[in-house]
Design a protein around this nucleic acid. Structure first.
Lengths: 223, 223
DNA sequence: CTAGCATTCAAACGTTCGTTTGACTCCCCC
DNA sequence: GGGGGAGTCAAACGAACGTTTGAATGCTAG
C-alpha cells in the first residue's frame, strides 16, 4: 500500500524542506551545513540522506515543491485571460505573471516569503545544475508568456521583446529577493513594505511602462 | 621607505584579487575554498592570510577595489551633468548611473565582467556584514542620484520615487549579473549579447519609461 | 503475539575547511 | 658584505563538512 492512512504523513520531510528554505535563503547552499539544517528542523542528522538521498537532491526538492505549483498557476491565469479567444493586454499579462510570485511573499507563516527570497538569490547563481533545473521548471510558462506578449505587441521586434522580458523578469526577481534594498535608497525603512497589493500596483505600472517604451529608431544593429 | 621602486608591486595581491573575483562569482564565498583560490592565483596557500588577514577581509578588498572607482565615476558624471546649474533630465540621470556598470561589463580581459556578475549576485545575498559594506559603499552615490531625480521629477511622491529607484536598481543589477537568462526567454542565444552600446540603449529606454510611468490615482495608502 | 517494514538515532567514517607555524629565500640599505 | 625585513613555502593544526553504518524503535498486517 503506498498510502499511509492517518499519521503525520511525511512530517519529517516537510520540516526539512521548511528549514532548508529558510537556511538556504540566509546562507546559501554551500553555506548551510546539514548539522545546522537538521538541528533547525528538529530531526536527526541522517534524516536528510534517508529521505532525499543527498544534499543536492534536497535542493532540487526545495525548488520543485514551490515552483511547480507557481508556474502552473501562471499558466492557469493565462488560460483564463485567453479564454473565448480574448487577446489580453500587456498589462493583464504582466499582472498574471507577477501575481503568483507576490502571493508567496505574503505567506510569511508557511515560509513562502523565505522561498521568494531564495528564488531571487538563485536567479543570479551560476551553479550549472541549478540553472538547468530552474530553466527546465520555468520553460513551459516562459514560452506561453512570450507567445502571449508577441500577440499583444505585434509591432515590436522579436529581439527587443526578448530583452524587455529579460528586464521585466529581472525587476520581478529582484523585487522578490531584496525588498530591503529600498532602505538603502530611502535612507529609512518604508512603512508599506509588506503591503502586497500596493506593491503589485507599483510593479505593474513600472513594468507596463517599460515594456511599452517607445521604440527609438536608434535601436538597430548598428552600434 | 613605504614605496617599492620598480618591481612587480603587490603582484601577488592582484592575482589573488583577480582569482577571487572569478571564483566568488562562480561558486559564491562559502563555496570557494582557499586552496582552490590560491591554486588558481598561482600563489601559496598562506598568501591570502598574509596579505589580507583572513578570507572575510579578502572579500571586502575585492569589493572595494572595483566599487570605489565605480561610484566615484557615477558621482563625477552627475557633477558634469549638473554643471552651470543645469537640471538634468531623468534619462540623462539614468544613463549616468548605468554607464559605469555597463562599462565594466565590456572589460572581459581584466576581469571586470567577472566583477559585475559577482556584484549582481551579491545584491541578493543577505549576509549581514556584506550588505552593510555594500550599503556603505553605495550610500554617497545613492543619495546624490536620489536628490537629482527628486529635482527632475518634482511632481512625483517621494515613496513612489523610492520604489521606482528600487525597481531600476534591480533591473540594472540583474542585467549585470545574468545576461544569460535571455537565453531562457529567447530559446536560443541572441547574437548581440555583448554589444554594450546597444544594451545601454535598450536598458535606458526601458528604465526611463518605467520611471516616467503614469501615476495612477489608485496608488495610495489605501490597500 | 509476532514477523516485517519504515523510520529514527548516536556514533563514527574519511575528507576538506580556514588558519597558523617556523624555516627558508631574496633583495635593499647601511 | 652582512644584518634585516618582506615575502614565500611545505607542513601541520583543530574544527567542521557530507555521508554511512548498524542497532534501536514504533507501527501494521497476518
Amino acid at each position: 500500500m503506498p498510502l499511509r492512512a492517518v499519521k503525520p504523513q511525511h512530517e519529517t520531510r516537510t520540516r526539512i524542506l521548511d528549514a532548508a528554505e529558510e537556511l538556504f535563503m540566509l546562507h546559501g547552499f554551500e553555506g548551510t551545513s546539514m548539522r545546522l539544517l537538521t538541528a533547525k528542523a528538529g530531526v536527526n542528522l541522517a534524516a536528510v540522506n534517508y529521505h532525499f538521498g543527498s544534499k543536492d537532491a534536497l535542493i532540487e526538492a526545495v525548488f520543485r515543491r514551490r515552483l511547480d505549483p507557481m508556474n502552473a498557476a501562471r499558466i492557469a491565469e493565462l488560460d483564463k485571460l485567453e479564454a473565448d479567444g480574448h487577446v489580453p493586454s500587456p498589462e493583464e499579462i504582466i499582472r498574471a505573471f507577477i501575481t503568483p510570485g507576490l502571493r508567496l511573499t505574503e505567506d510569511t507563516k508557511a515560509g513562502g516569503r523565505n522561498f521568494t527570497r531564495l528564488l531571487g538569490r538563485t536567479y543570479t547563481e551560476p551553479n550549472k545544475v541549478l540553472r538547468q533545473l530552474i530553466g527546465q521548471l520555468y520553460a513551459p510558462a516562459m514560452q506561453r508568456y512570450k507567445a502571449a506578449l508577441e500577440r499583444a505587441l505585434p509591432q515590436m521586434p522579436r529581439d527587443e521583446l526578448v530583452w524587455r522580458m529579460h528586464f521585466m523578469f529581472g525587476t520581478h526577481a529582484y523585487t522578490l529577493a531584496a525588498t530591503d534594498t529600498v532602505q538603502l535608497i530611502a535612507g529609512c525603512k518604508p512603512e508599506d513594505r509588506h503591503d502586497t497589493r500596493l506593491l503589485e500596483e507599483r510593479l505593474t505600472a513600472f513594468l507596463t511602462a517599460g515594456l511599452n517604451a517607445p521604440l527609438k529608431t536608434s535601436i538597430r544593429k548598428a552600434a
